[in-house]
């Protein structure tokens, strides 16, 4: 998911402008030279400046110089070049989507069913066989529930499937 520097830099500069304008509208503290408005304005101005530099392509020479190092980094090792395929994009977006699913679903259907869906979806996306995925999804959530709700006393929603502990 490569965004051109023009767009990312321009976006950051715009964000900086918003922050600057928003900051300038904050009420000052009477009798004091500086108040809550200064910091957003300074940060906004900085973002505008750096964002514009990025959009103009200044400083790119530094990236080229270190390219060899970055490509040897563990994070880029063995990466498929097919990241443009819609399936691959969905796979990459799956973890945050599952977190959003947790936010939406855990209160109503409870922790165990939500976690079941999350683990099963992750396993299947990573190429597990259906049987192993279902096994993982059946075993892992109760264990996590046991640790967090029993040992750490986190109030996890019981929902449709309360645990015996």
């Amino acid at each position: 998911m490569i965004i051109s520097d023009r767009i990312s830099g321009g976006g950051l500069a715009a964000l900086g402008l918003v922050s600057f304008i928003y900051g300038s509208g904050l009420p000052p503290v009477p009798g004091q030279p500086v108040g809550p408005e200064v910091f957003p304005m300074v940060v906004g101005a900085g973002l505008m400046f750096c964002g514009s530099l990025v959009a103009l392509g200044i400083g790119r020479t530094f990236e080229e110089e270190t390219e060899i190092i970055v490509s040897e980094d563990g994070t880029t090792q063995g990466e498929t070049n097919a990241a443009v395929e819609p399936g691959a994009v969905f796979k990459v977006a799956l973890p945050p989507l599952l977190l959003v699913f947790y936010v939406l679903a855990s209160e109503s259907i409870g922790f165990i069913p939500t976690a079941f869906v999350m683990v099963a979806a992750m396993c299947l996306a990573l190429g597990a066989r259906v049987r192993s995925a279902l096994l993982m999804a059946a075993v892992a959530p109760p264990l996590v529930h046991l640790i967090f709700s029993k040992l750490l006393r986190v109030p996890l929603p019981a929902g449709l499937l309360p645990m015996p502990w």
Binding site: V119, L126, V144
Partner: peptide, 18 residues
């Protein structure tokens, strides 16, 4: 297999941050 660890980590991210 990687899915065993990665799937549990996503779950831990949710429960842990909650």
């Amino acid at each position: 297999p990687r899915y065993t660890v990665m799937s549990v980590i996503v779950l831990l991210c949710a429960v842990g941050s909650f």
